[in-house]
Amino acid sequence: MTNSLNFKKLITHLFVLGFGLVMLYPVVWMVSSSLKPEYLIFSDPGLWPKEVTFDNYIKGWQAVGDVTFGLFFKNSFVISVIAMLGNLVTCSMAAYAFARMNFPLKKTFFALMIFTIMLPTHVTLVPQYVIFHSLDWVNTILPLTVPKLLATDGFFIFLMVQFFRGIPKELDESATMDGCGPIRIYLRIILPLAVPALLTTAIFTFMWTWDDFFSQMIYLTSTDKFTVPLGLRLFLDSEGSSSWGALFAMSVLSLIPIMTIFFFFQKQIVEGIATTGLKG
């Protein structure tokens, strides 16, 4: 009985591990190929490079005309960090009002907030573009950051409302007795106790903004404003299939921030998905 049970477990382990490795193979192969000399990438499909070189990284970094990938990384970081801070501040403010305060039209507003979560972004795309265009904001970071300062990611508001509701109300009440107003309760009680929800918001906002290709492509038009995804696309279009090595090298670099965040905050990320159904 135990033997057959152990055998079954072993088979499961082998299958799960084997299948998992097959799934990861393309990514590992890309990392390995980025370290191979160009001529070996296609002739040597193995994972272990016969010859290790950093030429692809040096060549890729300088890839596009007079700007380097360093600038693309800087641009991506600036946008992602501002988006992250914007969501943290404004989504938590709105969530606090919904979770802890009373005001006219609260139910209507809450329903509207839930509605915006389901709304495909394309429905607001054209008029938003018209607005930003008329403000002369196209080819600046403003169309990518200002919406985050206006709490347009309803999903995170919802996430925080749920979390704030779990914080005991007695804490607010005793603070009110001590003469604290709503603003101090928000700053001194709710925010410090809501760190897990804030962290989830920060992580996912950063990762999604980092990977967001669509709006960055629409709003950023000159090469010096380009972010990493746009830089990669430019590289693909200009050099294309003639320099896969360098293209892979920059692709690998572009994934490093996300992978780093994942390894530091794995628990928050996996739990965030499991408990709230955030899409990956």
Partner: peptide, 22 residues
């Protein structure tokens, strides 16, 4: 008033960037 203050950024976004554009 304080509650609407907390909601203000979201309200501006809702009207200016979501419902209006929709």
């Amino acid at each position: 008033l304080i509650a609407y203050g907390f909601l203000l950024p979201w309200l501006i976004g809702l009207i200016g960037l979501v419902l209006g554009p929709m």
